[in-house]
Simulated scan of single mutants.
Amino acid sequence: MTVTLITGANKGIGYETAGRLLALGHTVYVGARDAGRGAHAAATLGARFVQLDVTDDESVRAALDTIGAAEGRLDVLVHNAGILAAGPIDGPTALLAFDTNAVGIVRVTEAALPLLRKSANPTVVTVSSSMGSFWAVTNPERPESGLPLALYAASKAAATMLTVQYAKAHPGIRFNAVEPGATATDMTAAFGIGRPVGPSAAVVARWATLGPDGPTGTLQDERGPLPF
């Protein structure tokens, strides 16, 4: 049984990804900041719940300790929690964006590494964004070039770089960043854009089920590698 943790999985892409991996036979832990919403989502899916706020060190440690005590290992980690941080830009908003979208990856990864090392096929997927690709945001033929989301884009660039660097530091674990595709979620509602959640979750689920010979240290979308 593959043991999987998905952060920010009480709704949107994380929730749908959890459902897809459960259907494949994974034991899925729904990580969510809000205990009520997270527990409800897990119960609806038939998953397990851990309270996990990626901006809180103690919350992260407690969540991984819970999984470790119950399972003894972690096979798949999906960094899905994130915020858009649209609107006025100021210091507190920037700190929150980076704390959630980038520093949160460090917190959860570091806490998860001992459990991932006990897996026969450890895999880490970062739900990143092509908004964090310098190539995409400077390419006038790409829609990213017309979206002024400074804090989101910068923090997702950091998320991708962290993923690449973790791949270099831990060659026994596959780390990949994924652009799931523009998706209609609560986060993007103000823009009125995006496809249904299902196809985007399918992209994440595919990267969460890589075999041992899969790539590492990449940024990918559903068509293949994306330039950084």
Rank of each mutant, 00 (worst) to 15 (best):
T2Q: 13
T2R: 14
L5H: 10
G14V: 10
G14W: 05
Y15R: 09
Y15L: 14
E16P: 07
T17S: 10
R20P: 09
L21H: 09
A23H: 08
G25V: 04
T27L: 13
Y29E: 13
H40L: 13
H40P: 00
A42E: 02
A42P: 05
A42M: 01
T44M: 09
L45R: 01
L45I: 03
V50T: 08
L52F: 12
V54Q: 12
D56Y: 08
D56E: 13
D56F: 06
S59T: 11
R61W: 00
R61P: 02
R61C: 08
A63R: 06
L64P: 04
L64F: 10
E71D: 15
G72P: 12
L74W: 04
V78T: 07
V78W: 01
V78F: 06
H79Y: 05
A81D: 09
A85R: 03
G87M: 02
G91P: 00
A94L: 04
L95C: 12
L95N: 14
A97S: 12
A97T: 01
A97H: 03
D99C: 06
A102V: 09
G104H: 06
I105K: 00
V106I: 14
R107T: 09
E110Q: 15
E110P: 00
A111F: 03
A111E: 06
L113C: 10
L116E: 10
R117H: 13
N121I: 04
N121T: 10
P122Q: 12
T123Q: 14
V124G: 12
S130A: 14
G132V: 04
W135V: 15
A136V: 13
V137E: 07
R142T: 03
S145P: 05
G146K: 15
L147D: 09
L151T: 01
L151W: 02
A153C: 07
A154E: 07
M161L: 10
T163E: 08
A167P: 13
H170W: 14
G172P: 13
I173A: 13
R174N: 12
N176I: 05
N176M: 08
A177T: 04
E179S: 06
P180E: 07
A182C: 12
A182V: 15
A184N: 15
A184H: 13
T185S: 14
D186G: 14
M187H: 04
T188Q: 10
T188L: 11
A189H: 09
A189M: 06
F191C: 05
G192A: 09
I193L: 09
I193K: 02
G194C: 12
P196N: 08
V197A: 08
G198Q: 14
G198N: 12
P199T: 11
S200P: 10
S200L: 01
A201R: 04
A201G: 13
W207M: 15
T209M: 08
L210G: 06
L210P: 02
T218P: 10
T218W: 03
L219T: 02
Q220A: 06
Q220W: 09
Q220G: 00
D221M: 04
D221F: 02
D221S: 04
D221E: 05
G224H: 01
P225M: 03
